[in-house]
Design a protein around this nucleic acid. Structure first.
Lengths: 203, 203
DNA sequence: GTCTATATTACGATAGAC
DNA sequence: GTCTATCGTAATATAGAC
């Protein structure tokens, strides 16, 4: 049991355990997405949070770990969310489920998606391998759906791994142009892409 | 008339007009692609070329212009190459031509493609607008093919602009996994993707 | 937990000799 | 055209006071 619920309690001046930590991650996410990991300084992140640069090191051992934790968090959230979908057993229904899920999940997290693409090369080799492993698991989920559809005769796909990568590249591309305030609603976008995906793989 | 053809002529020691310039662009391209614009220093570029950092400023007014020239060169090459294709009038044949051209052209220039994606946000606003304009012209070429196919009844595409972006995202994704030394040849890859594109848009 | 101050290193760009 | 040397600035990370 924590006692944080006593929000009015007196605190040591300038102490904000449990508040600053999330703010650091949010500020880093936003700044990395806008300007790129290498172009953002610890001082800029601290400025956004409202502390001095030295204080950040209470929340991360270094800048590299901050980036890695953001990417790892995004990929584990993605995998957990997909596994929570209880996709249908029928391959066509499962493919529709995956298509709509991918567009929806990614459109809700544009900054995480952006840095998960762009900042891979700024990860240390060890960290890179861990993120790549998570990414491959997600790709494997779509590949599995395609393979089952081929076995059952619903899909005509000679190279399920490559087609899975092609579909994911197409769907993730939504993030480059979609805006909440635009002409099309998200369900309409889902419909356009699901139509293309379905036609592209159906037997 | 230049007299550069007298290749054996004595030169001032350490002077390499016409040689260092291209080497600077090649080194910058390679380093920007591997580590990112912001993470690469002028000293690193100079080291790769084999000169001191100060000498680079004989070939570019600053680092930003070096990036911009690389991206502009890539986009104008791309547009010129597409216009040189003399695409067929028939929309289906033109779409096949575009699909194969895009895969081939991009697979031959992985570093240029990579930085043209990743370093857009490191361009000054003015430079960004110029590159975006070129990119939109290329997208417009595909959109035009789709629109003609719809008019003629060959394609069933409700949103030609969005479908054009989706197709380009899918095709450019080839660069993330294709290797010359891999299991599939480039013509085989073209075939897999053309099959998907064709099925996705045909009426 | 945050601050100030600082150690150490590196950056982009320029000046002037050759 | 390239070099050496340098200006002015800013980077990551740490130390110690409060």
């Amino acid at each position: 049991m924590r006692s944080d619920k006593f929000a009015g309690m007196a605190r040591t001046q300038g102490s904000h355990a449990g508040i600053t930590g999330p703010k650091v991650r949010e500020a880093a996410l936003s700044l990395f997405a806008r300007h790129g990991y290498a172009a953002v300084s610890m001082r800029q992140i601290a400025g956004e949070v409202g502390v001095q640069a030295g204080a950040l090191y209470n929340y991360t051992p270094d800048k590299q770990t901050l980036l890695f934790e953001l990417l790892k968090g995004h990929m584990t959230d993605l995998l957990a969310a997909w596994r929570g979908q209880d996709a249908p057993g029928d391959p066509v229904a499962a493919l529709e489920c995956f298509t709509r899920f991918h567009i929806r999940f990614h459109s809700e997290r544009p900054e995480e998606v952006f840095i998960s693409y762009m900042e891979l090369r700024n990860l240390d080799p060890d960290n890179f391998e861990k993120i790549e492993d998570l990414r491959r698991q997600y790709e494997g989920a779509l590949e599995g759906i395609l393979r089952r559809g081929v076995v059952q005769g619903a899909f005509d796909v000679a190279e399920p791994k490559i087609v899975a990568m092609a579909i994911i590249a197409m769907l993730t591309g939504v993030n480059t142009w979609f805006r909440e305030s635009g002409r099309l609603s998200l369900p309409e976008v889902e419909e356009i892409y699901w139509r293309m995906v379905r036609k592209a793989v159906m037997a």
